[in-house]
């Protein structure tokens, strides 16, 4: 039993997308540019050449935020979306009827349709691959060239992530929606 979360030292991110590829290979995610569990968001810088605003061009790695109060789970009519024993938001593809309520409810756009199984798919924190084998990192954390991510148990005061959240300022995405994400962006 754990309460898994992830801290992202997003200023390290160089938008190389190693995380996205590692995730796809580890978890057998369907190929296709629109099919991804994690991604890196970025904007073109504000301004006109040669005066461009560097701060506006930050890279923001994103994915399912594994909300404590997940709108996707609330709206699912078949309970296909559920919390597993480690508080990870999961999808039971046997129960999913592809009504896509969850996709509309998710404020983070973290869900997509797997055309092979015709169900909704999303990040699992590698629960059924790496974690199931006893590994302690997700594929995205492990591969990251600049080590943006730290995955761990928020309930374990001695975990690296707990330490990071104690000592570093951080924020959550769309905190005002009351979803209580378990992804934390370190500043």
């Amino acid at each position: 039993m754990a309460r898994y979360g992830m801290a992202l030292d997003y200023k390290n991110c160089i938008n190389c997308k190693a995380c996205e590829v590692a995730c796809k290979e580890e978890n057998g995610v369907e190929l296709g540019a629109e099919k991804h569990r994690i991604w890196v968001g970025g904007n073109n810088p504000d301004g006109q050449w040669p005066l461009l605003d560097i701060a506006s061009a930050a890279f923001m790695p994103s994915q399912c935020q594994h909300c404590e109060d997940a709108p996707c789970q609330e709206v699912c009519p078949t309970n296909a979306t559920y919390y597993d024993e480690n508080h990870v938001v999961r999808v039971d593809s046997d129960k999913c009827i592809l009504c896509s309520y969850c996709m509309n409810a998710c404020p983070y756009d973290a869900r997509y349709v797997d055309d092979r199984t015709m169900t909704v798919d999303k990040c699992t924190f590698c629960s059924d691959t790496r974690l199931a084998r006893g590994e302690t990192t997700t594929a995205c954390q492990n591969t990251c060239p600049t080590k943006v991510r730290t995955f761990g148990d928020l309930d374990d005061p001695n975990s690296e992530i707990s330490e990071l959240l104690r000592t570093r300022d951080h924020f959550s995405l769309k905190a005002h929606l009351g979803t209580n994400p378990k992804l934390f962006y370190l500043t």
């Binding site: 290979e25 580890e26 057998g28 995610v29 369907e30 190929l31 055309d115 092979r116 691959t129 084998r133």
Partner: peptide, 12 residues
């Protein structure tokens, strides 16, 4: 066309 799958999920 893009193939539907060529990734292999790692097993336990």
């Amino acid at each position: 066309s893009v193939p539907t799958t060529i990734t292999t999920k790692t097993s336990t």
